[in-house]
Computed example of a mutant assay.
Amino acid sequence: MPLTNLLCGLLETGVNQLHQLDSSAVIKRKQLNGTIIYASLKELNFPLYFVISDRQVDVLNKFEGQADCNIRVSFSALNKLQDNHQLTHLIKTGQLEVDGDIQLVQQFAKLLTDMDIDWEEHLSHKVGDVIAHKLCYHAKKIHQGTLAQFNKVEKQTALYVTEEIKLAPSGLEVAYFCEQVKILEAQADTLLLSLNNKLEQLEAKSNKRLGTNSLAGK
């Protein structure tokens, strides 16, 4: 079996098994019933086609037909696709390319990542209530610690890029630049207003002279 088919099969099985535990999956699949999404990571040349029905999600590496929406996204932007306010920024910064309805991107992201799974309830049937509670408690702690470390690294990277190697402007520099632009705009408006007033005065004087010469000629 080709590696691409194996990866598609593993992804398809994983998504559908998680959906069996997700109480909201049926509703989200119905919203996308009959939709075909083409998705690929910018870091990898590995296209995927997600064929969504109200019963399951099929994952293919080839599809004979036209997808309803084409998505190319950077790996670092995957967790931001659900946020409406982030999408425009991701597109402007080149982290996300969309050919199709942007609403489909949001619904698709929620289908794959926003799952309402009560892990403690499902685990309790396997190992008992006490052990399930302890496992979930420690899992949450590990998850919170991982997120905290990730945010710390992200902030340190941003500081390094803006302060150390100066590849990007800092927040204060951007704010100062915007303020200077506003000042220049105000000065330009004042200058234009002054020029318009002078032109009007010159035009009035010119018309007055023409009127005087016309009366003198008579």
Score class of each variant (00 low, 15 high):
residue 151 N to W: 09
residue 195 L to Y: 04
residue 170 S to C: 11
residue 167 L to N: 08
residue 159 L to G: 01
residue 175 A to F: 15
residue 154 E to F: 01
residue 162 T to H: 12
residue 192 L to S: 06
residue 206 S to K: 14
residue 168 A to P: 00
residue 145 G to F: 04
residue 171 G to H: 06
residue 189 D to P: 01
residue 191 L to Q: 09
residue 158 A to K: 14
residue 181 V to W: 00
residue 181 V to F: 03
residue 173 E to C: 01
residue 148 A to C: 12
residue 205 K to E: 11
residue 179 E to G: 03
residue 162 T to I: 03
residue 156 Q to H: 11
residue 172 L to P: 00
residue 145 G to M: 02
residue 199 L to T: 14
residue 142 I to W: 13
residue 199 L to I: 10
residue 207 N to R: 14
residue 162 T to A: 09
residue 148 A to L: 14
residue 189 D to R: 10
residue 210 L to N: 09
residue 213 N to W: 05
residue 148 A to H: 12
residue 145 G to W: 04
residue 192 L to R: 02
residue 175 A to Q: 09
residue 139 A to P: 05
residue 218 K to I: 02
residue 165 I to D: 01
residue 210 L to H: 07
residue 202 L to G: 15
residue 193 L to E: 06
residue 193 L to N: 14
residue 144 Q to G: 05
residue 203 E to R: 14
residue 150 F to V: 01
residue 174 V to G: 08
residue 152 K to V: 01
residue 163 E to H: 15
residue 202 L to M: 12
residue 190 T to G: 06
residue 154 E to I: 02
residue 203 E to H: 13
residue 187 Q to L: 14
residue 210 L to S: 06
residue 184 L to R: 07
residue 216 A to F: 04
residue 177 F to K: 08
residue 179 E to A: 15
residue 198 K to Y: 05
residue 198 K to F: 03
